[in-house]
């Protein structure tokens, strides 16, 4: 059973549509006890960083997410991925969950269109169970204006957008983050969700 954290994130229903389609058992929850009982956790997210952190705090779910991230797979999606880092400077400095070292800042290039929106190819830097069985070229769907800055050891894959945009990140153990939307990335995105379910078992 995967716990999908409910704190008002906009892409919650798209994520659930994809999990339903894949017949992946999941529960949408704002109850810390239910997260404790789950085999894995998905943290969705769309919108602005400070508002999302505040909503997660107010939902009383911040502790449950961080505690469970030490013992079972956690996947943050889009803003949910950015929240895994230590901080973001979107609308002023705001602390994140601090599960992966690094920070979130605006995409620095002035030569490209912001937001980074559309299908971009992933450049894979390290093996990951999330990518098992997924062939290349691997294109995923991005929509974001801010990006993570992290060490190479935390980087599974990046997308080239006049610079490296971390696309898939990890703490090296249970924590994973996808800057793109696997639930909107066609067959390859669905395969990643399927792989995540396997990791939960």
């Amino acid at each position: 059973m995967i716990a999908v954290i409910d704190y008002g994130a906009g892409n919650l229903f798209s994520v659930c549509n994809a999990l339903n389609y894949l017949n992946i058992a999941h529960t949408v929850t704002g109850d810390p006890a239910e997260v404790d009982r789950a085999d894995a956790v998905i943290l969705p997210g769309v919108g602005a960083f400070p508002a999302a952190m505040q909503a997660l705090n107010e939902a009383g779910m911040t502790g449950a997410v961080c505690e469970n991230a030490k013992k079972k797979p956690l996947l943050g999606i889009c803003l949910g991925m950015q929240m895994l880092f230590e901080q973001s400077d979107e609308m002023g400095i705001c602390a994140g969950l601090g599960l992966i070292p690094g920070e979130v800042k605006r995409i620095p290039s002035e030569r490209v269109i912001i937001p980074h929106m559309g299908w971009n190819e992933l450049v894979i830097r390290q093996e990951s169970p999330l990518l098992q069985g997924i062939g290349t070229p691997l294109y995923t769907y991005f929509v974001h204006s801010y990006q993570a800055f992290c060490a190479d050891e935390n980087l599974i894959a990046y997308a080239d957008y006049d610079g490296r945009v971390p696309a898939l990140v990890t703490d090296g153990q249970f924590v994973f983050g996808a800057q793109f939307h696997p639930e909107k990335s066609g067959e390859q995105g669905l395969m990643m969700l399927r792989n995540f379910e396997r990791m939960a078992k």
């Binding site: 798209s14 549509n17 339903n20 389609y21 769907y141 909107k184 669905l190």
Partner: peptide
């Protein structure tokens, strides 16, 4: 459609 199609 949103239940079956996973592109934007």
């Amino acid at each position: 459609t949103a239940k079956q199609v996973f592109v934007p």
